[in-house]
Write a protein that binds this DNA or RNA. Structure first.
Lengths: 257, 257
DNA sequence: CGATTACTTGAGCTACATCAACCGTGGTGG
DNA sequence: CCACCACGGTTGATGTAGCTCAAGTAATCG
């Protein structure tokens, strides 16, 4: 709702150099001049409505996408028709990296709310990365960061119980919101309980019960999509202090020494 | 036992161009001349004994490693001291990709048996990739492939039960062995039941029981480390046909159209 | 304003973990 | 060379976290 016309129409055309998210996204560690070259290949598409697919499973891979505002879930449908969510993506994050290897998207991406994205045609990006070493490095770093996040999440799925998973999930979202300049204690979930359950490998009922229990225990305040973190430390304790490091982007900010 | 002195001592010094694994590893899509340049930066270390660490969690990241022979498990130790295995690596696979993003290894890597590796100093590799576009692309593809494998595995952890997990695991190992020119129906597990259980997020007892049940049902033949797949299709059915695609490297082979 | 969909709450069931005992095997030292 | 030990693996018995089924309530949508 808000945060929607923050980006003016001018901002819409004049891109990366002015983007609020540039220090989360591709332009890190790239000179102003090279950012302008990046700009030239980026195209901004009109916002996706909630439920709209950015790409479908099996689609030809032609471009990476960076989220400008809104949020997206990526998921796959298995042979038996069940959906499994791989990730939720927030502004500044790059989608489609898993499609580079075989030229088609192994998972679909659907907007969870009104969402706008930047399109980065891969062949042009690749060529530019060949010329701009900083961009090449940044691409590798982003992919590596993603690998990290996946590994952390695998760890959670393999060894944490339901309450640890949800606690970790909430903290992860919280800190990712924080990184984007929003409140890290109070935010809206753009995904349904069903999606959360699916993502965490739990039943919807379990997630629902945990939300009410966390609330009863004074850890959070939750009413439908609105969530407020009341006792961050208790949640972190519960999540085995995996809340912070589970975060995809956290580590990136302080490591540029 | 066998398959050990396949690599001669000559093969040990003259590298990538002669390597049996080159079509699984970095050199794909690179001209002969550029492979020689790659060769120059690769250094071959003496074999690691079983249980020896290639690197430890938190170590400074200076190089990627490619497995030449043997196998390696990578894992992290969480705050509470529990080990969680992220992956098992076979010959031709690259380790250390998750360390690019913040310059230190988020996970440790330990040899499961006598294992030899090639060391690829990252700064030199990075520079070479800047010059050789094919190498840059191949690096991205390998990372993307890894992302894929992680996502598939997350799906398994989040939505499959014990028997589906183990069936998928066995098929995955089988086809990875096949890709390397070994039998894909008969092979040795280099990891313990404990490791398998840890990796799959199960208890050792459960894994053990499943092994005996699979054997009783005539799906496999298993004695200690030795495994023989008897009914591939039945296992695939059980794994929700996730056995094949779960594989990290499968898709790479037929897509170079 | 009714109807569909998202979420919550309760009751019972089950897959798997945990605890405990036992077995085979490979290594070591007497 | 055998006896013993330690360790990885197997098997059984029991407990429980979380799933499933079921029904109710609240929000959303046409």
């Amino acid at each position: 709702m808000e945060s929607f016309n923050v980006i003016t129409l001018q901002g819409f055309s004049r891109a990366c150099a002015d983007c609020q998210l540039q220090d989360l996204c591709l332009p890190i560690g790239i000179s102003r001049k090279d950012v302008d070259r990046l700009d030239e290949i980026v195209s901004r598409k009109r916002p996706l409505q909630r439920g709209t697919a950015l790409y479908n499973q099996g689609d030809h891979f032609g471009a990476l996408f960076a989220i400008r505002s809104g949020s997206i879930k990526s998921f796959t449908i298995s042979d038996d028709g069940r959906e499994q969510i791989n990730a939720f993506h927030l502004p500044g994050e790059i989608l489609g990296l898993d499609a580079i290897s075989d030229g088609s998207h192994p998972s679909a991406a659907v907007a969870l709310e009104t969402t706008s994205v930047c399109e980065l045609p891969f062949d042009r990006l690749h060529t530019l990365a060949h010329e701009v070493k900083g961009l090449q490095h940044q691409l590798l770093r982003i992919m590596s960061r993603e690998l990290n996040a996946d590994e952390r999440f695998m760890r959670i799925l393999a060894s944490r119980n339901a309450e640890e998973r949800l606690a970790g999930f909430l903290l992860n979202l919280a800190s990712r919101h924080g990184l984007r300049g929003y409140s890290s204690t109070e935010f809206n979930l753009s995904m349904s309980r069903h999606d959360i359950a699916n993502y965490l490998g739990l039943a919807v009922e379990t997630v629902s019960r945990l939300f009410t229990r966390f609330q009863q225990d004074g850890l959070i305040e939750a009413h439908r999509k609105a969530v407020k973190i009341l006792q961050r430390d208790a949640l972190a304790e519960m999540a085995g202090n995996l809340g912070n490091p589970m975060n995809q982007a956290d580590n990136r900010s302080q490591e540029s020494s």
